[in-house]
Design a protein around this nucleic acid. Structure first.
Lengths: 240, 240
DNA sequence: TCTGGTTGACCGGTATACCAGTTGCAAGCT
DNA sequence: AGCTTGCAACTGGTATACCGGTCAACCAGA
């Protein structure tokens, strides 16, 4: 039986993703191939290839003879990435609505509708994960492998741009859930234009929420700026 | 002064691109890291990294312990890739028209207009290259680094899908040139919606031309079935 | 005290060697 | 003859060693 990560390279990749998005590493933090290799118990080569993969995905910046660093995402970068994401996700909604939902998407929709009836019966993480899954399944439902591949390459970039202010306020969660259900309705009714329009509005709302929360957290960051800088230069310590 | 390819890896990458798109390699052809390294006069590592880059870009398929192969592009793949390209290039046209043209784009436009006045004074390759440059400069003019990066990752995929039937008939060349000038007009007049619409129509025409030529070359395959393999890659024979 | 040159630790890039998995062919058995 | 089997020649994946470049700490001299 084949296992998803058979290769050290893939182990390193997933481990690095966990580190970067698991608040263990801040933007600008250095990533040494040698140290990572030692800490992950493998040679430099797999780590190196994983870092190059992450560089392709815009998560990391490799500077020859200087070091490799977690990429800093500015507000401008966020806006740019959002533009790209918008056209791709809208295309996905349009195509999915043209082809109709897959079985998996319908199943995800059933779960979302259950959640919408009594949201208090579910945790914030459950609802949020369901939303993530919805976007993925919608992408798969397009049946466009090139689109799926493209979005896969951009996924971490999106995540890096948006992950800092995870918003688990009930208000935001429920409106997001409602958006998803609306989009799914349009897909099931084979209404490409409506699905596209709803998706655009949904993404816009998400961006606004994120910008608002980022602005709010920026204020609180100022107070802990010194510690942040120290933590960044110190690098990383893997704790399992 | 820094040279574009300072690293062996980049030399290998560009050399491989030339090989794959220079009709020296057919779809499905095997690419051995060792042989290429020897052929290029470097070690396996740079070649390996170049191949991984090409794999990310969808040009090559790496099968562990089996080999690395030039990817085969089916008609279905072409349609899928086209869809993705369409939304991204249309976004580029829209954004470029919003921001207005860069100096480089204006310069390219001047060249194109000169060509349009007396096309017979230029070679087919010159006109075609100018078109390629137009698309690139239009992308740069968006000022959206994320978009530029995304399209850069997809560029070879586009090229692999479309490169076989290079169409240098005057008729096609001139209509393409006219399309580009029309789009540039819209950009200079700050008309995002018009630019987007013109770009969509332009891409559609390009796709149709390519599909037609592909069908034609497929038909000629049937008549010369014995020599099919040889004739397939030759096509139009542009001497470089 | 300030400055400028030196040195050494650290970085990613490259070369080389070895490993395990795959494949095709050929020898040998049925 | 046909099937099996095992060996040999590949493949890409990984480990290790070394290279030149970068940068910061440090120390000598003004």
């Amino acid at each position: 039986m084949k296992v998803p990560f058979e290769f050290e390279r893939d182990r390193a990749y997933h481990r690095l993703v966990d580190l970067i998005f698991g608040q263990a590493l801040e933007a600008g933090a250095p990533l040494s191939e040698r140290k990572l290799a030692e800490q992950l118990g493998m040679s430099r080569m797999p780590v190196r290839e994983a870092l190059h993969q992450l560089e392709q995905e815009g998560v990391v910046e490799v500077k020859p003879a200087r070091g490799t660093f977690v990429r800093r995402i500015s507000a401008g970068d966020l806006a740019e990435i959002y533009r790209v994401r918008e056209v791709l996700e809208c295309l996905a909604a349009e195509l999915a609505a043209t082809h109709g939902p897959t079985a998996a998407l319908t199943a995800c929709g059933a779960r979302m509708r259950t959640m919408a009836k009594d949201p208090s019966a579910f945790t914030a993480v459950e609802i949020d994960d369901c939303g993530t899954e919805f976007h993925e399944l919608l992408m798969v439902a397009t049946g466009n492998a090139a689109l799926i591949e493209t979005v896969r390459l951009l996924r971490l970039r999106f995540r890096l741009a948006f992950h800092l202010p995870r918003y688990f306020s009930h208000e935001n969660l429920y409106s997001t859930l409602a958006d998803h259900i609306e989009i799914l309705d349009a897909v099931e009714q084979r209404a490409p234009r409506a699905a596209k329009k709803l998706m655009r509005a949904h993404l816009k709302r998400g961006l606004d929420i994120r910008l608002k929360l980022e602005a709010a957290s920026a204020a609180s960051h100022v107070s802990t700026q010194k510690n942040a800088a120290k933590g960044a230069t110190r690098g990383l310590e893997i704790t399992e």
